[in-house]
Each structure stands twice: as C-alpha cells, then as structure tokens.
C-alpha cells in the first residue's frame, strides 16, 4: 500500500470533523475524493499531510506509521501537498517557489526540468513574482513545485477551482500522465465531474466526515448519482 488510513478521526482542536475514515490507496492509483461542500474533504487532506491533528486511528505511508510525525517530516518522506487555494508564496518569484519543492521527498537537487516538462509556461515566468500570475498558472506552479522534489504521492485539493476550463482539461491530462508515465500516486479532491471522470480510477464519497460509498467513475454518468454526491 502507498497510503493507508485506518479508523482515522481528526479535526480542529476538540471539534471532530473526520469520523472513523478508513482508506487505502495503491501505488500508481488515482483516487478521487468527492462530496458536497463542507463535508470534510479538505480536512481529510490536511489530516494526511499532518496539518490537522489526528485524534485516533493511524495514517500509514509506505508501511511507515506517520501519525505522530510533524508536517515537514511527512513531506520529506514523499507526500506532496497541493492545497485548495494553491498555497503559492505570492511574494516570492516563480523560481523561488519551485526551489522550495526540493523539500518534498529526499531529492538533493531540484529537478526543475521535470516541472518544465509538464508545465512549460513556468520556464518563461521564472523571475516573475508568483502572485502576479493568473489562477491557472498558479495552479500549474503549485503542482510543478512538488514535481521538483521526489513525491511518491500527490494530494491535490480542488485543482479546478476558479480556473478556466481549457486549463482544467490540461491539468487533468497532466495528472493522468504523471500517474501512468511516472508512477505517481494521486489523491484528488474534486467537484468537477468531467475532471473526475478524466482522471480517477476510483471515487471515494465523503459525507459528514465519513466515507459513505466507493464508486467507479462511470457510475457518475447517472445524473441522479452525480447529483446526490456532488455539489452540482
């Protein structure tokens, strides 16, 4: 297993949001986490990277129990986190943002070429302040940034949010390619039906902080099902 959550409960302070979630993700797999707004998808991602404290249960990454590890240590083990809202350092240049990706995994040298290979636009923007780029470009930077390191898994939280459709499609293709060509494992939180169906091998449905169903992507073809599980 690449990633395994067993009976995880977590939340903010004493407030519990994630309630007894168990989930396994195999190497190279793309798992979509779906569900309506406010059900706890982002909190689940933050629990995996360690930004939100686990109350009980365990998070295991590549056979290692990481439940007690701080966020930076989890990143160093190879968990690459692309948060909702992208988490770009807007005052730093694109190049400086990319350099920070070296901290994901144990790479000793930044692998900038890999970021440029998948997101050529970044090469042209290297010296520009990252905050001056468009939303789509920032999303590409956020993904490219972790590719500069050596992630084994990528946690991608709502990459399509606030981005024009053509770039959403491009990001979908890239995620698929990263998984198939580079063996990257992906957990992607999404609300965009076409993006989910373009990338996911499997969909995990969250409601009220718990996993309520697991679907094959094409089951979402049924409008009733899609309406039940997504915020459309």
């Amino acid at each position: 297993m690449m990633l395994e959550l067993s009976s995880v409960c977590s939340g903010y302070g004493r407030v519990r949001i994630i309630n007894d979630v168990s989930l396994t993700v195999s190497p190279g797999e793309i798992v979509a986490v779906i569900g309506r707004n406010g059900v706890g998808k982002t909190t689940l991602m933050k629990t995996i990277i360690g930004e939100v404290q686990t109350h009980s249960g365990t998070v295991t990454f590549r056979k290692q129990d990481v439940t007690a590890l701080p966020t930076s240590a989890r990143a160093k083990l190879g968990i690459g986190y692309v948060p909702q809202g992208r988490g770009i350092f807007s005052r730093l240049t694109v190049g400086a943002n990319l350099a920070l990706g070296t901290g994901v995994g144990t790479a000793s040298q930044p692998n900038l070429e890999r970021a440029f290979e998948f997101f050529p636009i970044l090469k042209k923007r290297l010296r520009q302040p990252a905050g001056s780029m468009s939303g789509g470009e920032q999303q590409q930077l956020a993904i490219g940034r972790i590719l500069v390191g050596e992630p084994d898994i990528m946690l991608l939280d709502e990459p399509s949010e606030g981005i024009q459709p053509s770039i959403v499609q491009e990001i979908g293709r890239t995620v698929r390619l990263l998984s198939r060509q580079q063996g990257l494992t992906v957990v992607i939180v999404e609300q965009n039906l076409s993006l989910i169906q373009a990338v996911a091998d499997r969909c995990v449905v969250i409601d009220n902080g718990a996993v309520i169903a697991t679907l094959a992507p094409d089951e979402l073809d049924d409008p009733e099902t899609a309406k039940t599980y997504l915020a459309i």
């Binding site: 990277i49 930004e51 701080p70 966020t71 990143a75 160093k76 986190y81 940034r145």
Partner: peptide, 10 residues
C-alpha cells in the same frame, strides 16, 4: 509568508 505551506514543503 505562509508557515503551514512551508511545512508542507518540508
């Protein structure tokens, strides 16, 4: 600028 994000990048 953003300590949480910095942590998430190791």
């Amino acid at each position: 600028e953003n300590p949480r994000m910095a942590e998430a990048l190791g």
